[in-house]
Amino acid sequence: MSSSEVMSIGSFAQRTGLTASALRFYADSGFLAPARVDAGSGYRFYEQGQVDRAVLLRRLREIGMPLAAVGDVLDADAERAVRLVEEHVRKVLGDAATAQRDAASITASWAGEPPSEPIALSGPVFAAAIEQVLSATTRESEIPVLNGVFFECGPEAVTVTATDRYRSATRTLLPVEQVTVGWSATVHADDLRSVLSGVHRSHRVSVALARNGVRVVLDGAAEQHCRLLAEPFPDHRAMLEALPAVTTRVAVEKVDLLRALEVSSAAEPSLAVRRDGLTLTGDSGVGSPVPALVTGPDLDIRFQLTTLYPAVSTAIGADLLLDLRGAEQPATVRSADHGDLTALVMPIPARSRP
């Protein structure tokens, strides 16, 4: 082996971004043995072919991967290595979210302010409501409040609302027991997602507002803490009140509309609303008739699938009402028999015709 084919530990360290001491540690740990060790001096030498493995080892350690997991990645094929890295990232993010909630709960205990009067709700109903409105949240670094759910808790009802500017979803719940004092706050959507599994398994839950968050108490007195978002929530009520009057109303079975959306697989499905029914047209230009009861003038309206489909799929009950106000006005999707879930969906401009 010629000197041009090997590198001293110092040169190898410079090439890979690892310190000489780290290279000795990884060699002794069995992760990156030197290509040759001089018997007399004990100097370690590395080959060019070891650079990629050393750089990968360094990068895996930089994202906080434990040594045992690093060894698994280094010895895995590409497909398994990708899966192991993704699993590690999910765990890191989960641990960080748990730490954030726990820290908020700890600091809340020092606030010296007792939580508001707890509001008792049905666990399964509360879980379903949160899941339904969470579909209208989004993560935008410039507008963090869009990754929040706005709670309005009064003596007779609890209303939860979310919006991503292109759609909104609102659900109203009845408390198991009435309370005397109300409150409102925007709760971090990621924290609500984290507590959902426990809420699903609880017959009854209670929610209460504290200075630094919302406390969700499950069956068995297990307590979860959800952070608040300080930014003002968009005035969704004013937006709803400013909407023009409904001009065309469509009554349609949820399963029929979902099936048509899924079969078309269009990124921007178009709805042709006529007196005799509804036709959904996909990217291919082929229309799929959907049985519907239509009242009002004919209308052609187009949506992004990513906004329309969640609004339809999370609706309650078998039958839906689509309240349409024109091709460029927000459409309302609501349940025909259970009107407490309301989703507002923005259409997109119709394609220009040649």
Rank of each mutant, 00 (worst) to 15 (best):
P289E: 10
P289C: 10
V290R: 03
P291C: 10
P291G: 13
P291H: 12
P291E: 12
P291T: 12
P291V: 10
A292K: 06
A292L: 08
A292D: 05
A292F: 04
A292R: 03
L293T: 13
L293G: 01
L293Y: 00
L293K: 11
L293P: 00
L293I: 08
L293S: 10
V294F: 04
V294I: 10
V294R: 07
V294W: 05
T295G: 09
T295F: 06
G296W: 09
G296M: 12
G296K: 07
G296R: 12
P297H: 11
P297R: 15
P297F: 05
P297M: 07
P297E: 15
P297N: 13
D298P: 09
D298C: 06
D298H: 07
D298L: 03
D298G: 06
D298T: 11
D298F: 00
L299W: 04
L299D: 06
L299P: 06
L299Q: 12
L299I: 11
D300G: 05
D300R: 13
D300F: 05
D300I: 14
D300A: 11
D300E: 15
I301S: 04
I301M: 08
R302P: 04
R302S: 12
R302V: 15
R302G: 02
R302F: 07
R302Y: 05
R302A: 10
R302H: 11
R302T: 15
R302N: 08
F303R: 12
F303V: 07
F303Y: 15
F303H: 11
Q304N: 15
Q304P: 05
Q304K: 15
Q304F: 09
Q304R: 15
L305D: 14
L305T: 13
L305Q: 14
L305Y: 14
L305A: 14
L305I: 13
T306V: 14
T306R: 15
T306C: 07
T306S: 14
T307I: 02
T307F: 09
T307G: 03
T307A: 09
T307N: 09
L308D: 11
L308Q: 08
L308A: 08
Y309D: 08
Y309E: 14
Y309L: 14
Y309Q: 15
P310G: 08
P310T: 06
P310L: 05
P310A: 07
P310E: 09
P310N: 10
A311G: 08
V312L: 05
V312I: 15
V312T: 05
V312R: 06
V312N: 09
S313T: 12
S313A: 14
S313P: 01
S313W: 00
S313V: 12
T314M: 06
T314R: 13
T314W: 03
T314N: 03
T314Q: 11
T314Y: 04
T314K: 07
T314E: 04
A315D: 04
A315M: 07
A315T: 03
A315I: 08
A315F: 04
I316A: 03
I316W: 02
I316L: 08
G317F: 01
G317E: 01
A318E: 13
A318W: 00
A318Y: 00
A318D: 09
D319R: 12
D319Y: 01
D319S: 08
D319P: 00
L320M: 02
L320A: 03
L320E: 00
L320R: 01
L321K: 06
L321W: 04
L321N: 07
L321F: 04
L321Q: 07
L321E: 11
L321H: 09
L321T: 06
L322T: 02
L322N: 01
L322R: 05
L322M: 07
